[in-house]
Amino acid sequence: MTATLRALFGTPLNAVLTLVMLGLFWLAIPPFVEWAFAHATWDGLSRKACAPDGACWAFVRARFALFIYGRYPLEERWRVDVVLVTLAVLALGALFAPRGRGWCLGLLMTVLPIGGAVLLTGGVFGLAPVATGDWGGLMLNVVITFIAVLISLPIGVALAFGRQSELPVVRWFSITFIEVWRGSPLLAVLFMGLIMLPMFLPNGVTVDNLVRAVVVLSLFESAYMAETIRGGLQGIPKGQTEAALALGMHKGIAQALVVLPQAMRLAIPGIINIVVDLFKDTTLVSIVGLFDLMGVINQSLKDPNWLGLAMEGYTFAVVLFFFACLLISLAGQTLERRFGSASRNPRR
């Protein structure tokens, strides 16, 4: 107790700081609690049902399904649930399963994307087709993030090796690719993908809006992946390659089986950061006409029944994104503990 007191009031400067902080808390916390909880309205069919001085959570409750699924048809939403639950189960399995973690990871990277795409788009096996324009809400953020990570990781690995290649053409291509994408703002290249892609494709060929956004995001993130993985590659001592070559391995095999696995372990924290950034950046697709969580919230705020509830809508988005990012970070930390460079797994 005295230690805490000393930490808070030990020196005059500290005491002043503590008092200032307490003052700020007093100014900020009671009004917030009053607004968010004490005076909040949880039920209602329109804005009129809500107390004027409290949060109108009835709005978020009424729109909750829209925020999660977007305009995905009501009777088909089980398909989204199946995909998301499978994703969660496989991810948990890949992280925590006592055995078969590799299997979970393999399924996560092969079966889930293909099966998920089939299930979500429909049109086969008697499933009603659902246009990608109807995908939306948080589910769209998750789907885009997942696919973009899946595509950008291998491209990133290739670019990271390409950047270190002895072949000048490959090296310069990789460097140019990486630097151009890293030097461009994401929103500008998303615009570009939207407007320019049709121009560069043969007449009559159209590409789905969602596919365009995913392609642009994947290429964009692959440049960042490449730099992180290059950092990992540079952290592996040259002796590893030399030893592998001395054992008679082919150069490419040595890189793939000896250097890359170690480099990826080193790169895990950086990759997790990129995934979190990517997840946050998926909100930008709302500006190029897709209805992700941000997009549906912006759209819902224009509903005449629920006008003027921006604070509630965006607070909900902040909370949802915060916990989602926290989840990714926690998964990343677990991944790092299990497979990372500092792992001391006694079972190995």
Partner: peptide
Amino acid sequence: SGNPLAAATARAVMEIVRNTPQLVQIFF
């Protein structure tokens, strides 16, 4: 600063800001 109150507040603010999209903050 070594002041637990200030440090915890700064940490909380930083974590919330870092883990929410920039676009959401700007719209907010």
